[in-house]
Design a protein around this nucleic acid. Structure first.
Lengths: 243, 243
DNA sequence: CGAAGACTTGATGCCGATCAACAGGGGTGG
DNA sequence: CCACCCCTGTTGATCGGCATCAAGTCTTCG
């Protein structure tokens, strides 16, 4: 089986055999995590990165008043602790939301990759940009959108990310988050998330049954959440030739 | 004089003569912008990137209800339209806040740089991470911090970024933003920004005189804004050797 | 000198937070 | 195996921070 990193990057471009091998070589060891296990704590001094090979993780920060802001949800092929490429100590805590597994990755391996496979390091820059745009979308949501819109956008965002990993999944999916977690991701309280979900349900956009969501009116949900799917507009034509 | 990109990256690592020359070669042309000029419009299909060589720019999105969320402020050495490395159309509008100048940069030049100067492309990945952390800090602010805290954090953030470009500047600086712009960056209305600035002033943290701010009690301001200066913790030890 | 933008200040309103209480369910230990 | 308990979800009542509306002043620039 392809390494999770090769799988992820292979969705974006056709990898050469060389590149494929180089990526596969990065994921030697694997470390499994129980649900709730802490992979990395804020202010830790991580010596390595991780690639998610299985399960779901999230990263968050705790503010001085004790409230939590969830920053990311991480799925197979996502890289954890990229920040350690710039900073000595982790700016965020990373924990497993489900049973999960990660492959440790030396920071220097990224440097070596840049030397041996320039196209891949250029691709990593592009992947960074995709994540940056995702962050600015969420920033605009937190700054300027209503509670209902933020919850709607979160549902669509997570569903889409789950679907790229499992194309069978369509209108119905398990979100895998508590309402408190939805709130900490969208800047709301659990109580208000509950009311917004109910409202989306009453308005016929979704139904819920035991933690599983079904999107009944995806177009309306997207309008409600001012949601734009970015994956349509990908363009990596500038990448240099493969090695 | 060093190119603005070489100047910026040179603050992070010691550039080799080769690298310096490669970076200088990127900034051939220069384009000047009047205050308020639009460099890039949302949904434009930019064929190139830009490096800011002079002045200040900002990027923002307009939501369907007409409200604006400011995403970034851009200073000398910052790269504009990095998103075009991943996407066909720009997700954000970029305009000049002051008289400004930018140097256009072909996307393919980034790819060529990755091939000829792997350490520089690895460094670009690190720079991306620094921006990503800046975004997550702001995300946490919008999601979980009070209006007063967000305004306090913005003041410190901008002052620090201005200071890296002009070390003479200390407690007093010209912010260069209207209160409406502060509001659009922090997710507030201009009216409430005004009240928060007044409050910071009444509490002895700042004074204002004609658009110029003086930070009277920086420690208190930092506590109020839950502000952490990230630049202290930089660590780029993993970079490969220079060429 | 006129006009438009930026700032200031007060009054009022609403969205989402907070507080509170209870129901269901699943895991754990006795 | 069962009882308990904590976690999650749900719903109502009230509160408060920030938005909105409004009006006036100051500044800047054409």
């Amino acid at each position: 089986m392809a390494s999770s990193l090769a799988e992820r990057l292979g969705e974006l471009i056709d990898l050469s055999a060389n590149e494929q091998a180089a990526l596969d070589g990065l994921e030697q060891r694997e470390r499994t995590l129980r649900r709730g296990a802490v992979l990395l704590r804020e202010h830790d001094r991580p010596s390595e990165l991780f690639v998610v090979t299985r399960g779901t993780l999230m990263s968050y920060v705790i503010l001085p008043d004790g409230s939590r802001q969830i920053l990311h949800f991480l799925f197979r092929g996502d890289i954890v602790a990229m920040a350690s490429l710039a900073y000595r100590s982790s700016p965020e805590t990373v924990i497993a939301l489900t049973e999960a597994a990660v492959a440790p990755l030396e920071r220097a391996a990224i440097g070596a990759l840049a030397v041996s496979h320039p196209r891949l390091s250029a691709l990593l820059i592009a992947v960074d940009q995709m994540e940056r745009i995702g962050l600015t979308d969420r920033l605009a949501g937190l700054g300027r959108m209503s509670a209902k819109a933020r919850v709607a956008a979160l549902l669509l965002d997570i569903r889409n990310r789950l679907r790229t990993r499992d194309p069978r999944l369509d209108r119905t999916f398990g979100l895998g988050l508590t309402q408190e977690e939805i709130g900490d991701a969208t800047g709301l309280t659990a109580v208000h998330v509950n009311r917004m979900l109910r409202q989306l349900e009453e308005e016929g956009m979704i139904t819920r049954e035991g933690g599983r969501f079904t999107l009944l009116d995806e177009a309306l949900l997207a309008r409600t959440g001012h949601f734009t799917d970015r994956r349509a507009g990908l363009d990596l034509g500038w990448l240099p030739a493969a090695r």
